[in-house]
Design a protein around this nucleic acid. Structure first.
Lengths: 212, 212
DNA sequence: TAGATTGTTAATCGATTAACAATC
DNA sequence: TAGATTGTTAATCGATTAACAATC
């Protein structure tokens, strides 16, 4: 799969992992690192590390390596993490609630402006400072605010309809936790499917394959 | 990345998606399907679909296509979903609790035998029929039962230590929801990292790239 | 039998790795 | 300057796609 700029999805998927590793180093007070060291930590080659970075620009210094602060800053900028993003959570069952309560949105400039559900037991409640509104009011509550990302954690049966509603509201991206694979033909909305069940299945495959 | 049998990780990742699509069809009463139709639904080529299946065996019939029931059965067998798997959930914060409450373990022969945490507020409670024990007692509670999979949802700081403890307990696989990338050198334990934050970041990248 | 669609081999394409000149 | 490590081009490897014979 390639992105519109022709950058392979594999590369994009590695960026958050680099970021995580580098942030750990930074917290331990490290200042510089070489592609070789990154490669060892990430179980890949120095070549791939350098290739991944140079697609986007030149972030290192010959003979020295990479300044960790600057590399972190650069990867964040590539991912778009330097900008603020407005988020809504649609579906406040188990996973939706867990996201609201435990996901570290603030550190990465994501602002959760509202949550939505249909269950009268949760509608009206506040979870971690975010008010849960009734799904019927989603357009009204959002108003003319531009929503960047919808975290979709509704039931399978509601998924497609809610997703279409998000598209009509001009939401830019859906992080889709329902086990329904959403596909939109157009380029106005991006979907990233996250299936916990799929991850469990692939793990199970490797156990099976190795008779564990 | 290749598995020990030399089957690419890409293929393994597609199997649960095929399974999900086919199960939907089955529920709608469909009986047969061609690789061409599967490819259209999955946004790939008929060639790839057939390649993916024939790695494992011959599940179709020339001139007819694939019998959906049999194909589902076969993919489940490949993934190891025909067998029972013993699961423990370690960490009963937001995500751990959500998994216990909402994940459809039973339909796929996963048996959640216990959950663990250190928080006195949850230790001793029952969640969806599963008792939460104190982390200190994990070896005692598990006893000589063989645990196949640990769902790890503890805090970042506890992740590495708990993971090592799982390895010593001969747990076969860890589904790792902590944002700590776990790596084990040996082949006795498999780890599948699931980072919700990483998924959010890659989605954000695509929005950024397309100026959404 | 004729038509359809698989399983499989060959061709293409893209991603990873290796090599090395540039340069700090 | 000498040593180190990047950025980048070329070589290799693997995954996807195309083509077609096998066969239901």
């Amino acid at each position: 799969m390639k992105s519109s700029k022709g950058i392979s999805h594999n590369v994009i998927d590695r960026l958050p992992r680099y970021l995580r590793f580098l942030t750990d180093l930074q917290e331990h007070g490290e200042e510089r690192i070489s592609s070789k060291e990154i490669a060892e930590a990430m179980n890949t080659t120095a070549s791939q590390v350098r290739q991944d970075f140079t697609i986007f620009g030149s972030y290192g210094v010959q003979g020295y390596g990479y300044q960790i602060d600057y590399l972190i800053h650069s990867i964040k900028r590539i991912l778009g993490l330097n900008k603020k993003h407005q988020v809504i959570v649609v579906g406040v069952g188990g996973i939706g609630r867990a996201l609201l309560e435990h996901m570290d949105f603030e550190s990465y400039h994501y602002q959760v402006c509202a949550a939505f559900d249909v269950d009268p037991d949760v509608v009206g409640k506040q979870i971690n400072g975010v008010t849960v509104h009734h799904m019927d009011d989603v357009e009204k509550v959002v108003g003319d605010r531009k929503i960047d990302i919808c975290m979709l954690t509704v039931s399978k049966s509601a998924a497609a309809k809610v997703a279409e509603r998000m598209r009509r509201m001009k939401v830019s991206g859906i992080l889709n936790f329902t086990n329904v694979e959403l596909q939109f033909g157009d380029k106005d909305i991006f979907v990233r499917n996250v299936s916990l069940l799929d991850s469990l299945f692939t793990l199970t495959y490797y156990l099976e394959e190795n008779n564990l």
